[in-house]
């Protein structure tokens, strides 16, 4: 097992808890979760609606700060990082595909893909080449300059993946990535996630979809219930 701080450990959560306060009431969305994910691993996070999957992804990606506990991302504890350092670390370390993809309407595939680069001073030639390579790889090269709201669901899914991978991050987080895909597109997505894993990236997918959770190549399935993890199991092991 590699040590924390070693780049081989892509994500580590140590007793991470996230509470939200709503007036007098307090909701514990993620409770005392400890989890370690190495590079080159594909982990599926499952659980019923409201079990805390999305918040857990947010904690892993440095988008949500834990109320208590610690989060390590790509060799660095991110809990106490200042905002701009955290943003830079997140930009370099995490590619994220949100539940509804999070593409900005009115922008083309290329413009959406280059959004992470705006705070760094904009795209350089190598970034443009990377976008060209990824759009060709995902079969949307001919849609590069099309505004995303004019594309089909499957094409938008791939556009979101292009954006998540444009900076070649070591961690890729996907929230319900097959929610709007048919069987053929889902199979394509599963193949692609396998490629990312094989390429050495840590892939974390929050999903209800058994086609993704039970796919070949998934290393671990983590089940969340009421904000906390049940025993992790390898795919194919008996249901908890």
């Amino acid at each position: 097992m590699t040590a924390v701080g070693d780049a081989e450990v892509a994500i580590e959560l140590r007793s991470a808890t996230k509470r939200y306060r709503d007036g007098e009431r307090e909701h514990v969305v993620v409770r005392e979760v400890s989890l370690r994910i190495e590079r080159g691993r594909w982990v599926v996070v499952r659980g019923p609606s409201g079990s805390g999957k999305t918040t857990l992804l947010g904690l892993m990606g440095g988008l949500v700060r834990p109320t208590s506990g610690d989060v390590w991302l790509a060799g660095k504890s991110i809990v106490h990082l200042r905002d701009h350092h955290l943003a830079a670390h997140r930009r370099a370390s995490v590619g994220m595909v949100m539940q509804d993809l999070g593409l900005l309407p009115g922008l083309s595939v290329v413009d959406n893909a280059l959004l992470p680069l705006v705070p760094t001073g904009g795209a350089r030639s190598e970034h443009l080449a990377r976008v060209a390579e990824l759009t060709a790889r995902f079969g949307i090269a001919d849609k590069r300059d099309v505004r995303v709201e004019r594309m089909s669901g499957g094409e938008r899914q791939r556009a979101a993946l292009v954006r998540a991978l444009v900076l070649d991050p070591p961690v890729v987080l996907l929230d319900e990535p097959s929610a709007h895909l048919d069987a053929e597109r889902t199979a394509e997505l599963v193949r692609l996630l396998g490629e990312l894993r094989a390429g050495g990236k840590a892939v974390v997918v929050a999903t209800h979809d058994e086609r993704v959770a039970g796919a070949e190549g998934v290393d671990r399935v983590v089940t969340l219930k009421d904000g906390t993890t049940e025993a992790a199991r390898a795919p194919g092991e008996g249901k908890e």
Binding site: G61, L86, A87, A92, L104, P119
Partner: peptide
């Protein structure tokens, strides 16, 4: 969305 893409509050 922009924050999830690595934009800081200052950006």
């Amino acid at each position: 969305i922009l924050k999830s893409l690595g934009w800081s509050t200052a950006d």
